[in-house]
Write a protein that binds this DNA or RNA. Structure first.
Lengths: 175, 175, 175, 175
DNA sequence: AATGAATGAGATTTCATTCAT
DNA sequence: TATGAATGAAATCTCATTCAT
């Protein structure tokens, strides 16, 4: 119903007004100020997961680099398609009360597992700490996209994607 | 005198109390709530720059990887030495009133220049977008250290440093 | 149809929901929040008056104490039969908009007249202030019954009735 | 500092304004809206207890009726001296959140014990249920005084006291 | 007639900032 | 200079009431 605001430092009145509803209506839909954020984060993350899963499925027979590229492209395209939602999910600008914020940790586990798998298969440097590498890459990716969405002269999406691919652990530390 | 708070969502009274001074005293030293943050950020950044400059100077005759390692180690050591200050400077948890926050952009220019230099010297893949690569790495580095400072079972600093070195553009995309 | 709530601090939505009707329906039947209370109070009081009148009529040839006992028993039985309604009528927990609440004053006039009659007949201490005595007894009676309805280990009704009889002005101050 | 308001249905703004302070000041002194009520109730009850204890001590060698009269007089005088405080403590017009409200139960235990003592000493009808009698009298007393404070043509305090004495269990059911 | 989503005035509460001491 | 009680604008949230269906 009401969906994508910047939601950084806004107050409930503004949120409601911006959504074209009364203050009371807001509270009819959400328990409190943070419930909206939780809701949007949950939805956004689910949407993103879907896109990434699809990308993964579609490239499962291709090269590792192609798989990485598809994943990164899916991520960037999601942000491009839903910039406001992306900001709500990944912007550190506000306060998810207790344990909500994904940030560094978002899907780090999934990437970590994938890297470990590649490592076992001999496709990734044995010396790479998969837990750290996964988190570092994810943090870099989510932050750069945040920047990209707001940059005055943003580079082309393709350029962004290509650079992320180059720095992805599975590519940068491949063997 | 008053220095290291988390300073994410705290109010002035709490800040002052925690610093052991009266609320009024706080306003005798700082114009407003954000002046403290600006002040700490400025000082913290200066301190960090000093450490990084020193590391750079000390390794200017060594290999690129050694230079990178020294830079990363300097960054991690700074965070370890001044965790609260680090959080104030790099945590996205609060609101510098417009344009203050370093985040992705911090010293990206410096790294960007260094990468461009390497590229010109033929030490870095020509296809790397130095502006993006610098920002991605910096974002990943600052965020992972934030996580590292608060992780329940943080990896050893050496491990963290090594992984960051592996993912550093100058190392990952060297030629 | 909708009848027995605690109605102390509840809001209209809850009242309507509990009554099994929509909020809108509530306002189709009552002008505002207090109209229900007024309505219930009026009905409750009428019901109670009927019971007391009946008790009075049935014992008009018996002893004063028997009359008092019948009246008190009628009161207690009414509360027992319609606890929610009783609470609405006698609970001080909410706000009848000006002048509605019976409380101390409920039927004090009737009892006052009865006491004055007894006094004229020489059956009651001449020194008793009938206006005050009537109000004190009524207040005590209505409040104790409120307590009785909610007490964790309430005494038997008979015990309650007997004690009220003992403390009734017409019994306690008889001559 | 701020002391006696009517405090029936008032809002925090009004309370603060009436006390001659800003809204914020109110919250500097009390945790929330109800804390004031709790505070006043506690103080009022303590004050009342003191008065009653004094009355009890001063009449311990006199007749039971004198003791009762002193107690009742102390109660009435307290209400007369601190009408607003009395209303806050005994008015049922608002909501002490959980377990605060004295009402029927106020000092019922003390009176109950006193009555039981008299009963053991053979000064009170054996058939009287002391628990009920104590609560009935207390309820009647507190409610009638509430009425008395607001009655358009209130009877003299002496008259009120005398009537309460006449209806007090220890007097009405003495033996 | 019945409904309940929507409303917004108003109540509660917070907090950056001031100022008398 | 240091203090913290006092302030009130602004934020969060509630709830009696309306109205389109």
């Amino acid at each position: 119903m009401l969906a994508s605001q910047g939601l950084g430092e806004v107050n409930t009145n503004t949120i409601a007004r911006a959504a074209g509803v009364g203050v009371g209506t807001f509270y009819a839909h959400f328990d409190d100020k943070f419930a909206l954020q939780r809701e949007l984060t949950t939805r956004g993350l689910a949407l993103l997961q879907d896109a990434l899963s699809l990308a993964s499925r579609e490239t499962q027979d291709q090269s590792i680099e192609q798989q990485v590229r598809a994943s990164v492209a899916g991520f960037v395209e999601f942000a491009h398609a839903h910039p406001a939602l992306y900001r709500v999910v990944f912007s550190g600008g506000e306060s998810l009360p207790r344990g909500g914020r994904p940030g560094v940790g978002f899907s780090a586990r999934a990437l970590e597992n994938r890297l470990a798998e590649l490592q076992r298969g001999g496709h990734l440097e044995a010396s790479v700490d998969t837990r750290l590498a996964a988190r570092i890459f994810n943090a870099g990716q989510s932050q750069i996209v945040l920047w990209w969405l707001e940059a005055p002269d943003p580079p082309a999406a393709a350029q962004l994607i290509e650079t992320l691919v180059q720095l992805h652990p599975a590519v940068a530390c491949r063997r």
